[in-house]
Write a protein that binds this DNA or RNA. Sequence first.
DNA 1: GTAGAAACTTAGAAGCCTACTC
DNA 2: GAGTAGGCTTCTAAGTTTCTAC
Length: 724
Amino acid sequence: IIFSLIRLDTSIELKLNDVHMHFSFGLRIVESARSCSCFYSKPQRTTVKSEHCCWFPRDFFKARATFLCFFCSPPRIKDEPDDDGFYASPKEDSKPLKRPREDDDLLVLEHVFRERGNTVPGSNRFFLILQDSKAKKAKSKDKKVPEADKRKKPKKEEEQKWKWWEEERYPEGIKWKFLEHKGPVFAPPYEPLPENVKFYYDGKVMKLSTKAEEVATFFAKMLDHEYTTKEIFRKNFFKDWRKEMTPEEKSTITNLSKCDFTHMSQYFKAQSEARKQMSKEEKQKIKEENERLLKEYGYCVMDNHKERIANFKIEPPGLFRGRGNHPKMGMLKRRIMPEDIIINCSKDSKIPPPPPGHKWKEVRHDNKVTWLVSWTENIQGSIKYIMLNPSSRIKGEKDWQKYETARRLKKCVDKIRNQYREDWKSKEMKVRQRAVALYFIDKLALRAGNEKEEGETADTVGCCSLRVEHIKLHPELDGQEYVVEFDFLGKDSIRYYNKVPVEKRVFKNLQLFMENKQPEDDLFDRLNTSILNKHLQDLMEGLTAKVFRTYNASITLQQQLKELTNPDDNIPAKILSYNRANRAVAILCNHQRAPPKTFEKSMMNLQSKIDAKKEQLADARRELKSAKADAKVRRDEKSKKTVESKKKAVQRIEEQLMKLEVQATDREENKQIALGTSKLNYLDPRISVAWCKKWGIPIEKIYNKTQREKFAWAIDMAEEDYEF
DNA sequence: GTAGAAACTTAGAAGCCTACTC
DNA sequence: GAGTAGGCTTCTAAGTTTCTAC
């Protein structure tokens, strides 16, 4: 399809031509001083089957008419397979996609409107709205829809999605061409405590200065948390708190144990309680205010598409909550001011103004990065960013690309495995270590394991940074030979504990690597992530340690789904199978969670529901039996009907019972396992979409609304025969 | 080639919200 | 209408990878 938009001095011409269909279509918007009018030429053939609908909001053109123009849909990318049947993902190859980017063209429109001085609120900006073929077909079938209704803006959000995955992508390195946003939302200023809320030191009331009081409230708000009992947390907090005190306060407050924050804490609890008790109207008011904030600051315009921002609020000040045994926990996270903020946007965009009386640290126009706002935090000195939501084009393209890289690994993984098996025998120690580490990364889905600065973060490790103390070698254990016992803290200080039988050569190599070493010495002393990734890059373009995790997670899901799905099962049972497949991946990737506090109670509740349902079923069966007996004697229509209805009741209760039992199994198996992380980050969504399509499972049963938005590209493109 | 900075992805916890139950 | 369980969203820490400067 040729889609072009030409701007002529005071008029704009939009043309859609489909040569193959002998179908041409034109549309002209003529700008006049006050408004613009439009006309379009009718398609020459009226029998053209349209799959997509290109729709422009009525108010956008400020013209009275709404026009719906139908055109032949661009072929699905999958319909044009390349040699190996892989999709052309962003960056993966340079073949242009089926439809050129509309952004540049629409950009012209954007400027026309800007020049004209029209204020175009985000929601009314230029959207190409594409409906999926099913929605379209459904619409065309329904001929009774009144004309007025047809003109109505489609309400369903699904209908308004921009299919960026059908467009051409930017050249390598370019992330956007136009970016405009409103800047960040700052944390609300500190509100001093009411006079009646007291702080006590050494049993006596003490009025704190505003700065010291603010930091004290951070601690008071966390009083019930385990953090405040930890020595490091208390020490760090006290040190930083004292920096905020006046000289008088500093000389008085010398011991944290003598500080009494309980009154403050009670005040915050009461406030929180009051919030819960607020009237409907008050809650509604807050909701509306949040919505207003979201509407104003929660979106940006990137290349003429309104995109949701992931985190438009600046992190408020507070006490640093490092995970695990973090040496910096309790330190004061200072308040971020506009003077700390770097704004990134287009030169020709409306640059967000800083709050009155302030200025930005810098305004830059770097379209080689994806962030909108950045600042440096004071705990680790690292940079924090405001970026787009996972549903955005920029994140989606990257996600898609990630899975395509993993699929490329699938094609050469056997070769790579053979290679590292060979390398176990290498004369070079470095090569052997690299090969054993890669074996672990591949087999156990371990993370790469970068080196970390000692004393700056919690002591956690990944594969390359494993130490001798993290593994135990068992020539024989529980009837298995060559077992390696892993026990270490990984990301987020989550414990990795696993006993794995390995190949003899790996075992012997590990013995070698551990020779003459102390427990705190590096297991792979000749290796780091940089060396490993460089080697991987040589094996396959774009290959890094992380890709193995993605690949193994996705391939495991696909295999497990094939193994566990029983075609005769009903929907709940199939979903249980899906969750079990997902769980296999979560276990592989060691995605753990703390068991929910209410777990035991909720399981007990569920069990009592099951028991009650069983009783109900027994009653229903008894009733059915007696109805049958009754019908045998009476032999009339009425008693026959009664039998039928009793039968149905039994069936219904059986189904309900089964559902509850499945729910209980699922919940029990999920007690300490987090499924979300793998679902969101490691599993190629097209596998799940294909599985849903194959078995007629509504996608909503697998992905919630947010997840469907993130994986819109996959939902649109994957068919039931999709193979990872 | 290397180190450190920058950029971006992955992660679990916490709190909010909503649907369900009584 | 109140209470609550659990799903969903938000938050931000903690990783990995890439970029840049020397």
